[in-house]
Design a protein around this nucleic acid. Structure first.
Length: 407
RNA sequence: GGAGGGGUACCAAAGUGGCCAACUGGGGCGGACUGUAAAUCCGUUGCGUAAGCUUCGAAGGUUCGAAUCCUUCCCCCUCCA
């Protein structure tokens, strides 16, 4: 290889390593990169997706961003929509048996999914495939043959299975097929690098095992860390509600980003922003020596996120609104409006009618706790009647506003 | 097939005849403070203006009175086979 080619390999390796939790085995990656650079053949990247959860959030983008970087380096990505595996059910949640999705549902889920994903990935370097295309035609004999390459002991290496086995909790036989199928996807696609979170390690390595069985070159498992959610403790997930969805509106996204614990900022910068490495170091040292205000750093982060998913204008606007509402204590320009009847209304009823409280008891509670403002004036009298005027602004808590429009 | 354990509010988990609209923790919400919706602290968390009403897997029953006792049913889990 020429010195230029060697340099290219080194460059790619550096980029791929960035933020990665683990690369198994790294020597294989180097070998594949050398091969790719020498021959001009792009590497085949794979990411498996579960079509049952159509909303993607920042946690998912950690892996997606890495794929994007690989695409930028010239490689091609296969997005495997698990329309077959999805019906089997992911072993991790034992409680809910998954509803079988209809063909149409899978299609439409996959479409919304992919649309969101292309906010991060290059559409022209991404191939979307469905694993039912090659998994469904397998015969029982095929499946048995696949299964015969593995042992129960090997399966029980998986932490989740091991734990359940130890605790005498049930493990269904079909759950063993999940990693097997995912591994077979890699065989089918002749995958060079499979991406996933660190929690996917077992499945990713299973791909290597199966590829070897099939006499293929083994894939590299590239694992990204799991991003902590807004609470700073648990991994970001929709069910925990600690997520920022990529399809969320700019203001929500900005606000949620502002609510992450300070300690989490560097991680978010590293894993989900496009801020270059050098700048990142600047921010970190600034935070450390106190020359950079944590609030300003976080606003920068929030702005970056909005810019990434909604564009420059939306980002600027979100920042402006934040300043206006939270730093200056003012009102947002664009608050929801509600049609109201004019005249005197009991405040409790008004709050419920406007959807600011779910029940009268809750409305009363808000009032008693001093959480209600009308045109900026705090109102605590539970029995109060208010004269509804056009343009009147009712606020509950710090961030819920409604402007009344009298019919 | 046999034996046992369990289903309580958003979640976890107390309560085993009245003092239980139900301890406590988490979460959520409100407030104070701040540097932001960080951190911390305080309050609050079924519905109802109220009297009161409806909740403890479901349906019946006993009782002046049941989350607590009885009957039937549904669901979950464990062990043995």
């Amino acid at each position: 290889m020429t010195p230029e080619q060697e340099a290219e390999v080194a460059r790619q390796l550096r980029m791929i390593r960035r933020g990665a939790a683990e690369i198994v085995p790294e020597e294989d990656l180097v070998r594949k990169l050398r091969q790719s650079v020498a021959t001009g053949q792009p590497l085949r990247i794979k990411l498996g997706l579960d079509p049952t959860a159509p909303d993607i959030h920042l946690g998912h983008t950690v892996v997606l961003q890495k794929i994007r970087q690989l695409q930028d380096l010239g490689h091609v990505a296969h997005l495997v929509i698990g329309n077959f595996t999805g019906q089997i059910g992911d072993p991790t949640d034992k409680s809910e048996t998954r509803r079988q999705l209809s063909e149409d549902e899978v299609q439409s889920n996959a479409q919304t999914y992919v649309a969101q994903i292309f906010k991060v990935l290059h559409p022209d370097k991404t191939e979307v495939v469905y694993n039912a295309d090659w998994l469904a035609p397998l015969t029982f004999a095929d499946v048995v043959r696949l299964a015969s390459t593995l042992t129960v002991a090997r399966m029980l290496e998986r932490e989740d299975f091991q734990k359940r086995f130890r605790e005498n909790r049930p493990i269904h036989i079909h759950e063993f097929f999940y990693p097997l199928m995912q591994a077979y996807d890699s065989v089918h696609l002749r995958t060079d690098i499979e991406l996933g979170g660190t929690d996917q390690k077992f499945n990713l390595l299973m791909g290597r095992t199966l590829q070897r069985e099939f006499g293929q070159e083994q894939q590299v498992a590239l694992m990204m860390p799991l991003l902590e959610g807004l609470d700073g403790v648990n991994k970001m997930s929709k069910s925990l509600g600690n997520y920022i969805g990529v399809a969320e509106d700019p203001h929500t996204m900005f606000g949620k980003a502002m609510s992450i614990p300070d300690e989490l900022m560097p991680r978010y910068f590293e894993l989900v922003s496009e801020v270059p490495l050098e700048e990142l170091e600047c921010i970190q040292s600034g935070l450390k020596d106190g020359s950079l205000h944590p609030r300003d750093a976080k606003m920068r982060l929030a702005g970056e996120l909005v810019r990434r998913f909604h564009g420059e204008d939306a980002s600027r606007e979100a920042v402006a609104r934040w300043r206006q509402v939270f730093q200056a204590g003012g009102l947002p320009d664009d608050m929801p409006e509600a049609e109201c009847n004019g005249g005197e209304v009991w405040i409790v009823e008004l709050l419920v009618n406007l959807g600011l409280a779910v029940s009268r008891s809750e409305a009363r509670r808000f009032l008693e706790q001093g959480g209600v403002r009308i045109d900026g004036e705090r109102l605590q009298d539970v029995d109060a009647k208010v004269e509804v005027r056009d343009g009147m602004v009712i606020q509950v808590g710090k961030r819920r506003f409604v402007r009344c429009r009298v019919r």
